[in-house]
Design a protein around this nucleic acid. Structure first.
Lengths: 169, 169
DNA sequence: AGTTCAATGTCAGAACCTTGACATATTCGA
DNA sequence: TCGAATATGTCAAGGTTCTGACATTGAACT
């Protein structure tokens, strides 16, 4: 263990108690969010990856399979099966052939937009529950710090860093 | 951002941009952490659930299968296969029979403690990278806010809430 | 006691996601 | 121009996790 305590110099060491590590708390919060979203989306016959796909697609129409995969933090292969399912359900459409390149731009159908809107009502209630649990002004700090943590992790693992939603500064 | 920020009522609505939602940022940070830990633990021949199990077990010796599952945010069934693997690898031990009840208390073996210590060196470097990315004093705020978010989500989904690592206040 | 209830451990099946690989298409540089 | 590097879509195989179900055990209640 430690030779002796560092005199409260705010050391960048992990806390002694595992349950107060940033990683543990992050995992805990994510698990809670996942569970809440699973429960809510079940009534809409949508999985979390499916919903995430629709949500991102509504914000950035025309994204390709690989781009959607990066934006939702899954592999291209996983997103491929998600897209097949959503396409066969009539919630989105992709051109069978494309003028140039291999990437096929994906767009929501009217039915897809309808289903997304219905699900958003419940999912946004979950989001609102998280936001309202934070003291005034702390939301922005939380978002900023989560961004810092993400960037710090990507710095040493520059796989698909700097995807969507990464603030410039 | 804006210099003249009026002390508005800070509405608990989700942001317009999906990529600035708390849920999205949480998922993003978790994915980055998961990737970093995966990469680091691969050299120790451990998966993230396996490492989590060892870590929790070191902090709370004698936990049962179900308790470990709750502490690491997986189902009993998943933890069961993790425990089987770790047991057959000789990293932990469980009594075949128990005096009372059904729960079998799990404890690390010496080899388990050794492997955990080796892996911790690398995992704690990841944790330190996250912590050092935060401005001074913001670590505690981040932990607190993540706790608030978790509690808020559990309030409406009181499945296995109040597990380990939940601060009393 | 006897019964209901909750919690635990486990089995079986399905669903999910990942790693690895390959073919195709664009871009870039020698 | 041609080849290397990069990016995309897709297939195949494996591992992981979850949902659903059941038996067992202890606790709570009547």
């Amino acid at each position: 263990m430690d030779m002796h305590e560092v005199p409260r110099a705010e050391p960048p060491h992990p806390a002694q108690d595992v349950f107060e590590h940033v990683g543990y708390r992050l995992k805990q919060a994510h698990a809670a969010l996942r569970g809440a979203m699973d429960a809510v989306l079940r009534e809409h016959a949508l999985t979390v990856p499916q919903y995430s796909c629709l949500e991102v697609l509504a914000a950035r129409p025309g994204l390709s399979n690989a781009e959607l995969a990066r934006a939702t933090f899954v592999t291209r292969q996983s997103m491929n099966v998600v897209l097949r399912g959503l396409q066969s359900a009539g919630l989105l459409s992709r051109p069978d052939t494309v003028a140039t390149g291999r990437a096929r731009p994906t767009t929501l159908t009217d039915e897809g937009r309808r289903r997304l809107r219905a699900a958003q009502r419940d999912v946004y209630a979950v989001e609102a529950r998280m936001v309202s649990a934070l003291p005034a002004g702390r939301l922005e700090a939380l978002l900023t710090d989560l961004g810092r943590v993400t960037r710090a992790l990507h710095d040493d693992h520059p796989d698909h860093a700097g995807a969507l939603g990464e603030p410039g500064t």
